[in-house]
Computed example of a mutant assay.
Amino acid sequence: MPENYYDKASRFLAKLDPGAFLSWLLRLPASDFVFRGWLDTRGVPFPGDTDRVSDTVAHVENAGANGVPWIVAVEFQTKPDPEMFGRLMGYLSGLWLERKPDTERGSRFHLGAAVVNLTGSGSASREMIWPAAGLYSQLRVVERNLELESAEELLVGIEAGHWAPALLPWLPLMSGGDTSDIIDRWKVLAGGEPDRRRKAQMAAIAMLFATKTGRKAIWQTKLEGWNVDESEYVNEWMARGEVREAQQLILRIGAKKLGPAPEGVEVVVRAIQDRARLERIADRIFDAPGWGDLVATV
């Protein structure tokens, strides 16, 4: 299974219920922060991934500090990246320079980062101190290593109403996520989802993650009768993600060749859902005389 299947599934889950996800991720009561939305981070590429634009950069406000605005960059890793500290430092600096919470002069975001490792245990935080020289640098990252998280604790939290059911698909990645009793309780909670499509999506992602951890057999047996077709939803996420990436590539590379895209042109590009046509447009970027001619490509 290609790694970006898991990445896209993780991003989909984060956006399924952003408030609930961030509350769990940051270990904060929902009343302690206000989620303002996911920031448009085009133009601030993640170091090492020049063609990928992160779409899980949250704008949140600290409710206990008069609404201080924060950027929280959320990264999902199939396995820990030993260079994550350096990559986050580069990414956060770009966000701080390029994005502002409002138009007031001198207004800046506070910066934070969180990493979710689907497997393995990472160490993205660093503290560097040289007392005699007066030098001190630190990046403290919220890091959730799912293989060390307790499936039992997650279920208890959801059963008690402390956490939202939207967190259920992560459970197969957690410690104890392959036991019969745990999966039976998972089914009860997931079965209470009134939206049939969302229920199917949650089950499909759970099966996808169970496959990653070698637990597919027991989950498949336990979910018999649920009519889970993870391939249908995985293909849907992949197609949607590939279209977005193609649109972003055209707008970013086109801006370098033709100048910034006029607002109307950007709307046209983002409305194109045909991947083949987007590829044809991308192929013409360096030959087209202008944006109008480029987006007229059929």
Results as ranks from 00 to 15, higher is better:
G19H: 04
V269F: 02
D293N: 07
G192E: 14
A206C: 07
D274Y: 10
M202C: 05
L223M: 12
R11Q: 15
G122V: 09
I218G: 06
A65L: 14
A133K: 11
P29T: 11
E75P: 07
W96Y: 15
A206H: 04
A132M: 01
G120N: 10
T41C: 07
R42M: 11
G254E: 12
V298F: 09
W186K: 00
G48C: 08
T41M: 10
P82S: 09
T56I: 13
F85H: 15
R215T: 11
R108V: 12
E279N: 14
T213R: 12
A9K: 02
L22D: 04
L171W: 03
P169Q: 06
A276N: 09
L171Q: 08
S23K: 10
V243C: 04
T41E: 00
P260T: 05
G86D: 07
I250R: 02
I272E: 15
G112N: 10
T41I: 04
W163A: 08
Y6M: 03
L148H: 11
A73P: 05
D178C: 01
A282H: 08
W163G: 00
A164F: 07
E98K: 15
L39G: 01
G86S: 14
E236C: 02
M238G: 06
V44N: 01
L251I: 11
L258C: 11
G90K: 03
V265L: 11
T50V: 14
V265Y: 02
Y5Q: 13
D229V: 13
N227T: 11
E98R: 15
E263Q: 15
E61V: 07
F76E: 01
Q201K: 09
V116F: 03
V115A: 04
P262H: 06
G64S: 12
G177A: 09
V142G: 01
D102C: 12
R280F: 05
T119Q: 14
A73L: 14
E127G: 05
R277H: 10
V53P: 00
T297E: 15
L173P: 00
A190I: 08
G94A: 12
R277K: 14
R275P: 01
Y91V: 05
R185V: 04
Q220G: 15
D17S: 12
P172Q: 09
F12G: 03
A114V: 06
A151R: 02
D55F: 07
E193Y: 03
P165A: 11
P29H: 07
T221G: 13
W163I: 02
G292C: 04
G122H: 04
M174D: 02
Q77L: 05
R42K: 06
L111H: 05
V53Y: 01
R198F: 03
E3M: 03
V74Y: 08
W170I: 03
L22E: 11
K199C: 00
R197D: 00
K212Y: 10
E159C: 08
E266Q: 15
V60W: 04
V269Q: 02
S107Y: 06
R52A: 13
E104F: 09
F21I: 00
G112A: 15
R284G: 06
A132R: 08
